[in-house]
């Protein structure tokens, strides 16, 4: 049963990651694949604050989210001021650089990983309680992204994707919109990191690398960018598929690369065969009040 709970928690965490990443790359049109590094910052900050600082775990998780939020502003602000294309380069550099850096810091476990992270809920209320917590936060994330993107802020993001110059000429601040959305998406990933850390209780820098970037990207692309349920379906499918092929009894030397191939292969197949993903987003932005407006 523990196996099923763990899968459910992983699905919940990846729903949070894919949904928040869709906010950044799909809705806001920001090209970055460094989402896992903000997941990592949330995880490490929360783990260290709870383990070494004795901070209550819920507070530590929030602090992890805040740290990811702050770090993402530091990455996004200078690069977006230069040009939109710089964000991709700057964020990947930040991701890979920070991972290498973390491997050499002994106080956070170095390359061997951070162990003995304090647990949360599981010892007192059982694993089900943690499953419920993660799924509740996943649901909140999905609803928040839907609410934000279907309101006046979503209208701004749609317009900015269409034509940034015309958008600025109306008096709107494109850089501010981009930095805000990048920071919110990254902050949510940071919260997911805290949730990961206090359940699995072990973190190592390498798990937050490009393989995870491609996994999250695949979830969003396969599920369907800019749809509410796309990232959810993508997260479920791509979490279950790698688990499913473990039942074929393949040796680990094949299994590992096969899972990696599956992610990039799926992205390629979908790019050609169904670029809109399993669920297709509508071409025209529709605010949450557009139906009543039309009727009224």
């Amino acid at each position: 049963m523990d196996y099923v709970y763990t899968i459910l928690i992983l699905i919940g965490l990846f729903v949070i990651l894919a949904s928040s990443f869709d906010l950044v790359i799909g809705h806001c049109g920001l090209i970055s694949i460094a989402h896992p590094i903000f997941y990592a910052i949330g995880a490490y900050v929360s783990a260290m604050l709870a383990k070494e600082g004795g901070m209550p775990i819920p507070l530590a998780m929030l602090a992890g989210g805040a740290a990811a939020f702050a770090a993402s502003v530091l990455v996004a602000l200078p690069s977006l001021r230069v040009s939109g294309d710089y964000l991709l380069i700057a964020s990947i550099g930040f991701q890979l650089g920070l991972i290498e850096f973390a491997k050499h810091i002994h106080s956070i476990g170095g390359a061997g990983g951070l162990t003995n992270i304090p647990p949360f809920l599981v010892n007192t209320y059982g694993r089900v309680s943690y499953v419920l917590l993660v799924l509740a936060i996943a649901l909140l994330t999905v609803l928040f992204v839907r609410w934000l993107t279907r309101g006046p802020y979503g209208r701004m993001m749609a317009a900015m994707r269409d034509d940034e110059l015309a958008f600025s000429m109306l008096g709107r601040n494109a850089i501010w919109v981009k930095v805000s959305i990048f920071a919110i998406g990254s902050g949510i990933a940071g919260i997911a990191g805290g949730l990961y850390a206090h359940y699995f209780r072990f973190l190592e820098p390498d798990q937050f690398g490009l393989l995870q970037s491609s996994a999250i990207l695949t979830m969003v692309v396969v599920g369907g960018m800019r749809t509410t349920l796309g990232p959810v379906i993508g997260a479920i499918v791509l979490q279950i598929l790698p688990q499913a092929i473990t039942f074929f009894g393949l040796p680990p030397s094949i299994l590992g690369p096969l899972q990696g191939l599956m992610f990039s292969g799926l992205v390629l197949v979908f790019m050609f065969a169904r670029p809109q993903g399993l669920l297709a987003a509508p071409d025209i932005w529709a605010g949450r009040d557009s139906k009543e407006r039309r009727d009224g």
């Binding site: 006046p152 802020y153 932005w285």
Partner: peptide, 25 residues
Amino acid sequence: LRLFSSLSVLDNLMLGPRAYSADNL
């Protein structure tokens, strides 16, 4: 023209006031 092609006519205009409803997140 540079109109916002993924928005309706009304939504194109809604972004036009000097101060926009959602300028501040």
